[in-house]
């Protein structure tokens, strides 16, 4: 999945969150969006999926300018993992959470079950299939959330600070997972991170945001 963003501007009330942001991401590319708190990283990621509206500028996904009618179709082809794993004491199993990713795919019950198992296997969480969501650690929740996205065989993964609550081993495991998915399945990965130091790694392109603008 490709993304082309041109002269993006997002305002919230009187405050300008993003201004004149332009960049392109190729299919299968790995990109990290870095910046300090309030730089506009999460806003940028959310506008790429139409979660937040834009004031001006254009976003093209796979070459097509997106509008109200196409966001739903794009969300079906992309996976999004939010900054904080959902913290809930609501009774729900890992299989049920991952199964959410299969909604709207038109798969049969057996196919859904296979996709759920495959997603958990890819993320190294097969042993958690029947576990209760509320009992998982932060790292397990993030990996299961990625498995939920993988269920729909996405062409892009948009990850919002997925390593923020993880220990060094958990961060490394998650980055390796993102790299493996990108290399093996050609999935485009756009990852927001507060900690740019972690991304002195091969194969990642860095977009740096400061006060809502992309740094050259």
């Amino acid at each position: 999945m490709t993304f082309v963003v041109e002269e993006l501007r997002v305002r919230r009330g009187a405050a300008t969150i993003l201004e004149g942001v332009s960049f392109a991401v190729d299919s299968g590319e790995r990109v990290t969006v870095t910046g300090s708190n309030g730089a506009g990283k999460t806003t940028l990621l959310k506008t790429l999926l139409g979660i937040l509206p834009v004031d001006s500028g254009t976003i093209r996904v796979d070459g097509t300018p997106v509008g109200t009618s196409s966001w739903r179709r794009i969300r079906h082809r992309a996976g999004y993992v939010s900054q904080q794993a959902v913290h809930t004491d609501f009774p729900i199993t890992v299989a049920e959470v991952v199964g959410i990713g299969c909604i709207g795919t038109g798969l049969s019950r057996a196919e859904r079950r296979d996709r759920i198992r495959a997603g958990l296997e890819q993320t190294g969480c097969s042993h958690l299939l029947r576990a209760s969501w509320s009992r998982l650690s932060g790292g397990e929740k993030q990996r299961v959330s990625i498995a939920r996205c993988l269920c729909r065989q996405p062409r892009a993964l948009l990850l919002d600070e997925p390593t923020s609550s993880l220990d060094p081993e958990g961060k490394e495991a998650l980055l390796e997972l993102a790299e493996r998915l990108s290399a093996e399945s050609g999935i485009t990965v756009i990852m927001v991170t507060h900690d740019s130091g972690h991304f002195q790694r091969d194969g990642w392109r860095r977009l740096a945001l400061a006060e809502g603008r992309l740094l050259p």
């Binding site: 979660i51 969300r75 079906h76 939010s82 959902v86 809930t88 609501f90 909604i103 729909r152």
Partner: peptide, 10 residues
């Protein structure tokens, strides 16, 4: 479970 997750799943 979570309305934002539901929304971003289409």
């Amino acid at each position: 479970y979570d309305r934002e997750t539901a929304f971003t799943t289409g």
